[in-house]
């Protein structure tokens, strides 16, 4: 052997540092991997429970029917029958549980109608669209259209 120990002493030290690094990694891995990791799959099991912990916000259309029978029936026969109440009124689970206490929005601005009915060339041609600059500008849409039965 051409080289003696003192010629590669520094290299052995480097190797030792490298192994030390691997060791530190393994220890850190054992310490810091979340406890619930891998419980259900390759992720932190607790994240499921954390998400389950979030309060629900939406009640669904069936819930509204119980107290707003009239609006419900009217809407289900109208052109807007495909829309869920909460699309326009926002999440309303809390309102459904405590209607007197939890206020719900009555959307008033015409931006609401814009979102779906403004002219847009990429919408399906047979979807009703109006040019907001020409279709009775300045007037409230709701003056002529009932949002629960628009035509």
């Amino acid at each position: 052997m051409k080289y003696s120990y003192k010629d590669y002493k520094h290299l052995l030290r480097l190797l030792a540092i490298f192994l030390l690094g691997v060791g530190v990694f393994l220890i850190a891995r054992a310490l810091f991997t979340p406890a619930s990791f891998g419980e259900f799959g390759h992720y932190r099991g607790d994240s499921l429970r954390e998400n389950m912990g979030f309060a629900a916000e939406y009640a669904g259309m069936a819930a509204c029917k119980k107290c707003h029978e009239a609006v419900y029936t009217k809407k289900s026969k109208s052109k807007h029958k495909g829309l869920s109440c909460e699309t326009c009124h926002g999440p309303a689970l809390r309102h459904s549980l405590e209607p007197k206490k939890e206020k719900i929005v009555k959307p008033g601005s015409k931006d609401l109608c814009h979102l779906c009915h403004s002219i847009n060339s990429v919408r399906r041609k047979d979807f009703p669209q109006v040019d907001f600059k020409k279709h009775n500008p300045g007037e409230d849409c709701l003056a002529c259209h009932d949002s629960h039965d628009p035509l």
Binding site: Y3, K6, D7, Y8, H10
Partner: peptide, 19 residues
């Protein structure tokens, strides 16, 4: 940074160069 090893003999340097 020298890892407290100060050998810079030609052999050591040659080894360094090879590696």
């Amino acid at each position: 940074m020298a890892l407290w090893s100060y050998n810079i003999s030609p052999e050591a340097l040659e080894l360094d160069d090879k590696i």
